[in-house]
Design a protein around this nucleic acid. Structure first.
Length: 261
DNA sequence: AGTACCACCTGACGGC
DNA sequence: TGCCGTCAGGTGGTAC
């Protein structure tokens, strides 16, 4: 479920395992995962260098090398990281392996190959080039209001629009709307100022709470909708049935009793 | 400006 | 058991 909280957890993991170690080799196991760069260039740029620090913006993780470009990691719908000792059973679907000394490596894993590994001059340059909005957790209420002001479309697609704000995907947009008591089909224009503020508060609370629980839905508070993303589920607040509906081309889960507008 | 649709990929699941 | 359609949390391009 790689949305903002998941990437935040991957950042903690990468920082704890893979910084300040010489990259002895880079193994590209599937070139389709590389974006705008060849295998050879990636290896040449990274070999002998070290990861010094990482930054997260939206659903992207950027890793700074001790000199040269930044590595940018995007995880698509099925991506992850795993640091492990190299042996005969490497993780399945490892697409790129960053190899350190003593036979340890950081594996970039992507089952469906929808993610991307690339290089950029800086996170700022990458964010600009991709037209990403501000990070959803680095957004104050006033700016949130300005971003939504005058928008004609639905609230769910606005929350998921990476050009507007970066980091929220299908699952967390549903959770934020549920916590705020707003229907996924609600139009932005139909929300008064108070509900926009509630939405903002829910966004901050949901994202930070998810990160605190390692982005693992099975550990989320009982008041959360996310673990109930099945059609037979019950609303954690009122006990009524959870409904599923296509909204903005995605499967939205919501409680018709607790969410309005 | 905002939305619909398709494409990119692979795997899981249910129906037959 | 095998085949087939459908669906899955990502982004990006095109057409309206």
């Amino acid at each position: 479920m790689p949305e903002l909280p998941d990437i935040a957890v991957l950042k903690i993991y990468l920082d704890a395992t893979s910084l300040h170690k010489e990259i002895e080799d880079v193994e590209v196991k599937h070139v389709k995962i590389l974006q705008d760069i060849s295998s050879r260039s990636l290896v040449r740029e990274l070999k002998g260098k070290r990861f010094e620090r990482s930054l997260r913006h939206g659903k992207y993780l950027f890793v700074e090398l001790n000199q040269g470009p930044w590595v940018s990691l995007h995880f698509g719908m099925t991506g992850s990281l795993e640091y492990h000792k190299r042996n005969r059973d490497a993780p399945q679907y490892t697409r790129v392996a960053f190899v350190f000394s003593q036979n340890y490596e950081l594996a970039y894993i992507s089952k469906r190959l929808l993610g991307a590994v690339s290089l950029s001059d800086s996170p700022e340059e990458f964010i600009e080039r991709h037209g990403l909005g501000p990070d959803a957790l680095d957004l104050d209420l006033q700016r949130f209001k300005r971003l939504l002001d005058g928008r004609r479309g639905g609230i769910k697609s606005a929350l998921m629009n990476q050009e507007l704000m970066a980091g929220i995907g299908n699952v967390y947009s549903d959770e934020i709307l549920f916590q705020a008591g707003v229907m996924p089909v609600a139009k932005v224009q139909a929300l008064d100022e108070e509900r926009i503020e509630t939405l903002y508060d829910s966004m901050q609370t949901v994202l930070t709470t998810a990160i605190e629980h390692k982005a693992n839905p099975s550990q989320f508070p009982e008041t959360f909708l996310t673990p109930q993303r099945t059609e037979a589920a019950r609303c954690p607040r009122c006990g009524g049935p959870i409904r599923k509906k296509q909204v903005s081309q995605r499967a939205a889960y919501f409680c018709p009793h607790c969410q309005q507008g």
